[in-house]
């Protein structure tokens, strides 16, 4: 019985396809660290490595301080900015990052959020509302940059669950 419970506990951890985490380097450059399960093709498609990849964030011009889009985003996330729940296939997800487009990664407590208080639970909740069902936690919003490194739109959200991560398309209610 104990063995069965142990197997049940370990099952979700051992069955993830891939997952991701935003990290900052010592030089305060942001990156997305992607970890893949052995045999999972996502990392191979993304960076020709088997177990992990690093996606470097773009440098977002004017994103810290008085940025219309970023302030609009943090105030309206979960309300006007929503997940479409349309998931990308792993192939499309890998192509998203390797297509040459640059992104910045927006999190509830990330360095771009200068609009709500540190540890503000409401922001956490609004962010969490982007991720539902099986993939319910740790949302990371991908905001696409234009040619001049200015933030263009919140295009996708990475959501995590017990079975790894998925990337969903995002929508803005006003459009």
């Amino acid at each position: 019985m104990k063995t069965l419970m142990l197997i049940m506990l370990l099952l979700p951890l051992s069955s993830f396809a891939w997952e991701s985490k935003v990290e900052l380097t010592e030089g305060l450059e942001m990156k997305l660290k992607v970890s893949c399960e052995a045999g999972e093709e996502f990392c191979m498609d993304l960076c020709q490595e088997e177990l992990s990849c690093v996606v470097e964030a773009g440098s977002c011009k004017n994103c810290i301080g008085a940025n219309s889009f970023i302030s609009h985003f943090y105030r309206e996330v979960g309300r006007l900015f929503q997940s479409t729940q349309r998931a990308l296939t792993e192939k499309d997800a890998a192509e998203l990052f390797s297509s040459g487009s640059k992104f910045v990664f927006l999190e509830a407590q990330g360095p771009y959020n200068i609009y709500t208080g540190v540890g503000d639970l409401r922001t956490e909740r609004h962010f969490e509302s982007l991720c539902q069902g099986q993939f319910f936690s740790r949302p990371i919003v991908l905001a696409k940059l234009d040619r001049r490194s200015r933030v263009e739109r919140a295009s996708h959200v990475i959501c995590h669950g017990d079975f790894g991560a998925e990337i969903f398309e995002m929508s803005h209610a006003g459009d």
Binding site: L28, S59, C60, K61, I64, G65, A66
Partner: peptide, 26 residues
Amino acid sequence: FRHSPEARQMALNYHGLFRQVNLEEL
């Protein structure tokens, strides 16, 4: 402020964050 090697040297390891600051509005 964003692109010169001199600013990178002045900002040291903070440059990655500083170059994203909306300098003109602040």
